[in-house]
Structure formats: C-alpha cells, structure tokens
Design a protein around this nucleic acid. Structure first.
Lengths: 184, 184
DNA sequence: GATACCATGTAGCAGTTGCTACAAGGAGTC
DNA sequence: GACTCCTTGTAGCAACTGCTACATGGTATC
C-alpha cells in the first residue's frame, strides 16, 4: 500500500475524531489539515478535493455509528415500536452518543443547504437508519412499516435536536415524558 | 420616522422571505443586500453588522411563526398530549409551514456551531415553543410539564428534520404512523 | 447663506476560502 | 548515470468574506 493510501486512513481516523468533537464548525481545508496533523497541500494530495475529504470522514463516522447502534440494540429479537423508541432514545441521548447525534443534525442542515457532499451522505445514512429500524421492528402485518420507521427515526432525531439546543439537563426528563406518551 | 428606520423594516420584510425560501444558504452580506434590493454598503448603514441583520430578520420570522401557531391551535381549550402532538404535526408538516421548520432546523445547527447570533435566537424561539405547548397542554397534576413539553417539541422537530431530508413524500405516512404510536 | 447632519456611492482593506503551478528531494529501474 | 515516478514543500492565485474610510449630494436649521 502506498504512502498515500496509508496517510488517507490516518487522516480519516483523526478527522473523524475532530468532526465528532467540533461538529462542522472547523472544516475549512486549513483547519482540517491542522487537525489531521498534515499540511493543507498534502491533504489535497491525499484527496481530490474538500468534498472527498468530508465524504471519507463522514463514511467512517457513519460506519461507527451503525456499529454502535447494532451492538446496543441487536436485531433478532424484534421490539414493538414503543419499546424500540424507548431503547433507542435512551441510547442516543447517552453521553457517548450525543456527539454523533449532534453531528448528524448539523449534517442534515448542511444537506438542506445543498452543500456538497452532504446531500448524498444524508441519503445514505438515512437509508441505514431505516434499515436498522426495519430489522428490529415488530409490527402487525398490514401496518405501514416504512411510515412507522420514519416516525421512529423522527422521534429519535427530534430528541437529539432539542437536546443540543437546551443548556439545562432536560434530556432524561424529556425521554421519560416521551415514554409516557407512547402507546404500549 | 427616519429613512433609515423605514428602510430597516423594508429590508427585514424582504429578507424574511429570502430566508424562508433559501434557508441559510445565501446569507453573505452581499447576497443579503442583493435579496433586499439595496447595496451592501447601505445594509451596514441600516444595521450595525451582519449579526444584527440576521437577528432582526429571524425575530420577524419567529414572530410570524408564533402568530401562525397561535392561530392554527388557539389556547383556551387544552389538549391531551397525544392530541396536541397530532394537531401540531399535521400543521407543521403542511406545505405552508415546512419552510419555517426547515429554516428552524438550519438555525439550530448554526447555533450548535456557535455562529452568532443564532445561539441567542434558538434560546428565544425554544422558550416560545415551550410556552406555546404549556399553554395548550392538558396534563394531570403532578406530571412533569416541562419534560412533556420538551418531548412534544422534540417529536414535532423530528418530523421536520426527517421531512427535509426525504425526497419522497413520506411526511403524511410518517405523521399517520406517529399518531398510531401515541397513547390514547 | 453658512453649518450641520442625514443618506448614499465608490473604492478598497485585510483576512479566509478552495485550490494549483512549480520545483525539488528521494527511491527505484534500465 | 539517466530516467521516471512518488512524495513533499513553497508560494501564490482569484474569489469571496465582513467591514470601513472617504467623498458627496441633499436637506434642514440657524
């Protein structure tokens, strides 16, 4: 494997941490290069352009997110919608996962703005979410699985959105109240 | 009233439409000035700096949002949580309100990034949301009103977030499925 | 009619953005 | 040794960013 390929991996690894820590706030080429410990000139030697850097880093982050979700709530034992929401809500609002969800909200907003490469990333991650929910959803035959999956994702993402713009520690109370709103 | 004050109102009015149409995508000073039909030099004569422009425009947008919410679901006849969620979900995913919600998601992301003046705006709008919910929420004594309000806002915002990054028209099915997930 | 203030245009500043041209060191091959 | 290719540094470009200095025409006030 060439130096270039090795360096790509090193850079992606470091920048994944950078994005999870700072969100999309410090993502100019020079800031990314500094965070990765290389010169901006070399960053554009390893990757074609800035969009490719971000795409590679986000793919890595999305992969880790998917892995953690799969471990936290394995498939094989489908859950009723309310229970799936409760478990997912508890997990995603935990201290470890909040930065993932915060980054996710920022990425969705960037995609809404049409900023490359985020629209494609959002489509990919969202498809992964749907699949994840679908594989864990115990729903009566004839029910709208796609609609229900979208609704479940919406609830989880909504918790994250409110969480990141609330200073006080309201997340646990919010999750508890949400649980009470759900039918069993 | 001075010309300056009159122009401030004209500019705010036009830029409110601009932000609702394009989100935060075209918000450089020169782009804002063009959308408002004035020179960038004059924009900074009417307002102290870019942050003041955005703050004024967002205050206008938030005011209109609050007015529409108040009209669509008046207070005075408190609703049980599930019913409030259903009504709010139907309203905010409607064609008229989607651009408000989309802009809201973008503003939350900008605030998460620490970009002035969005953190302050988010705090203000979020407080308004809480108040709006609280004034319409029929909840047994002893229940956690704040937590429940936060949960309701989360659900509504989550619908908006998923809505803006789904190409297909899944919003109605998502809203219907959500309704089924709620107790009552 | 002089003075002062409001309103507006021209021009440009210093900083950041994404990206690139060019040169050169190093390693391997013929 | 000549040649080629991978790797890296220096320097910089044109575009855009938020913002400002300066001049000027107008209008109101004394």
């Amino acid at each position: 494997m060439s130096v270039r390929d090795t360096q790509r991996e090193v850079v992606v690894e470091r920048l994944a941490g950078h994005l999870l820590e700072h969100g999309l706030a410090r993502t100019s080429l020079r800031q990314l290069a500094q965070a990765a410990g290389v010169s901006d000139r070399m960053l554009l030697y390893y990757f074609a352009d800035k969009a490719e850097v971000l795409a590679a880093v986000m793919a890595r982050v999305a992969g880790e997110l998917a892995m953690r979700l799969a471990v936290a709530i394995p498939d094989g034992a489908p859950l009723k919608p309310a229970e799936l929401v409760r478990r997912a809500a508890e997990f995603t609002t935990g201290p470890e996962m909040r930065r993932f969800m915060r980054l996710w909200v920022e990425v969705v907003a960037a995609a809404a703005r049409g900023e490359a490469p985020f629209p494609a990333i959002v489509a990919q991650v969202m498809a992964g979410f749907r699949q994840w929910v679908d594989a864990r959803l115990d729903l009566p035959a004839g029910a709208d699985r796609e609609g229900t999956a979208a609704a479940i994702i919406a609830v989880i993402d909504g918790l994250a959105l409110v969480d990141i713009c609330s200073e006080d520690e309201i997340a646990p109370r919010m999750a508890a109240a949400l649980s009470g709103l759900l039918a069993d």
